[in-house]
Design a binder for these strands. Structure first.
Lengths: 196, 196
DNA sequence: ACCCCACCCTGAACACTGTTTACTTTGTGA
DNA sequence: TCACAAAGTAAACAGTGTTCAGGGTGGGGT
């Protein structure tokens, strides 16, 4: 029933993209009528919301493992950055639902909140440890957190939209990504990130 | 005629977003019939493409001025980063057309190419000067260029999607942005960006 | 055994979308 | 004045998300 719809929708979304999948096609994939789906989900968005929550569950599971396995904070950040980008590449549809949808159309009360907030807390904690260890000079932890997140997030967008492929051409993406993450995490003296 | 359609479409796109504007609404805004538009543009996408080219023209004009006015390469990069983000905030629809659309559905032959490529060249050149000046250690210029672009691009996405507002809460966005750009541009010794 | 009710599901419809086609109007040059 | 090409239109096509009135079907209660 519900699970059946979700699995069919996930496969179709991942393969064809959210906008290219119609309720009629989801229904067709499981031999239902389009209207029947509305007994389990109030609209197409809600199917997505449920899948998004699943995505965060999957991501945060790996993230917890990475935190456990890497006690060195810099190594942990490097691994996390690469993992974030790998996730964006390997589960693009989940990724887009989780990190690219407009926050205004996300019900913050929904099942999304739990694993999503845990993921952010884990990251924030790591950054605070790094800042406390003096890896980034006097920089503010919030500034560092947003800067690093922006970095990997933006890189994911540039890769996914094809701009890296067009502009970097022959370079291997894997090594490029590794180099970029290293650059973002370079230790450096950096004044307090206040107004300047 | 053509100009009339473009102006109406631009206003509607900026105000309501590309997907929420139908050809019928564009036509209605200028008292045309929907079919009449197809005499000037072969489809809805082409209207967008034309507007995107306009956007690059506008952006690159400011970029040229900034290159002229700032001989210090680090100051130039800082100003350019902030300007990129300001453009993303103030002309969100142009910005999205220029930097967020899928490259596979962009006709590289079209009028887009000229100013778009000039913009990228100006940026690349500045980064190469910075690297040559030793601001970022041994890092590769391509790595630095993509890392910095990723940074401001990702930050624009995080702000636009509302994640910064939700997670940073009370902090002023302007000063946060300034701090983040400073952090991204912090001088630092950084090994060659090759595989690691 | 009967009846009735609640649930699940369906076909058809509604109000949209981008786009195409056949047709009418309009302006201009010969 | 006539003719022809350009400009604009209404209507239709194929698709979308969503809603709604009605079939069936299964499981109690009497």
């Amino acid at each position: 029933m519900r699970r059946l719809i979700l699995d069919a929708a996930r496969q179709l979304f991942v393969r064809e993209g959210f906008d290219n999948v119609s309720m009629r096609r989801i229904a067709g994939a499981i031999d239902y009528s389009p209207a029947a789906i509305y007994r389990y989900f109030s609209n197409k968005r809600e199917i997505l919301s449920t899948l998004r929550a699943e995505g965060f569950d999957r991501y945060v599971a790996g993230q917890r493992a990475r935190v456990r396995e890497h006690s060195d904070v810099l190594a942990r950040m490097r691994v996390e950055g690469v993992a974030y980008l790998r996730f964006a590449m390997e589960e693009p549809e989940y990724y887009q639902l989780m990190f690219c949808t407009d926050c205004s159309e996300v019900d913050l009360e929904g099942d999304l909140a739990a694993s999503s907030l845990e993921s952010h807390d884990l990251f924030q904690e790591t950054v605070e440890q790094a800042v406390a260890a003096g890896l980034f000079g006097e920089a503010d932890a919030d500034v560092v957190a947003f800067a690093l997140w922006s970095g990997v997030h933006g890189l994911a967008q540039l890769i996914r939209s094809g701009r890296v492929a067009v502009l970097a051409g022959d370079v291997d993406v894997e090594t490029l990504v590794a180099g970029i993450v290293d650059f973002m995490l370079r230790p450096g003296r950096c004044g307090g990130g206040e107004a300047k």
